[in-house]
Design a protein around this nucleic acid. Structure first.
Length: 115
DNA sequence: AAGGTGACTAACA
DNA sequence: ATGTTAGCCACCT
């Protein structure tokens, strides 16, 4: 995993079903806390058929990004709801209760790796 | 090789 | 509280 994108995919693959993460959180876990936009870029080029659950990544406000050009936000909302995530529709935007669904990975201090 | 572009964010006004 | 601004940095012309 020498590629930035690959690291993004690896982390996103670790998001459990029914949980979500944010662009910033993933960037931080890669070690580049300011590279949230790059995370979005990486997810942009993930095919629907891939094993990367791109739909489990939303923005820091708990909203499905309306700037999303790769897939309609509606599709992302459907995928999340299919996993049991409660998605509210407010003013044409899809919002998620972030404190409730945010993925909070445990850190393994021993090896400096994460679960 | 150099500059433009964002599935973002935190900081301001 | 809500709207704007300015950093951000790997990728793609």
């Amino acid at each position: 995993m020498t590629d930035f994108y690959q690291r993004v995919y690896e982390i996103v693959r670790g998001i459990p079903i029914g949980r979500v993460s944010t662009y910033g959180q993933i960037a931080a876990r890669i070690g580049a806390p300011r590279a949230a936009r790059m995370v979005g870029m990486a997810l942009r080029s993930t095919p629907s058929g891939s094993d990367v659950p791109w739909h489990r990544v939303i923005n820091s406000k708990g909203i499905i990004s309306i700037e999303n050009l790769a897939h309609p936000p509606e599709e992302q909302a459907n995928l999340l709801m299919a996993e049991g995530v409660l998605v509210r529709t407010i003013d044409g935007m899809y919002t998620i209760d972030l404190p409730l669904y945010l993925w909070q990975p445990q850190l393994v201090v021993d090896k400096g790796e994460t679960l």
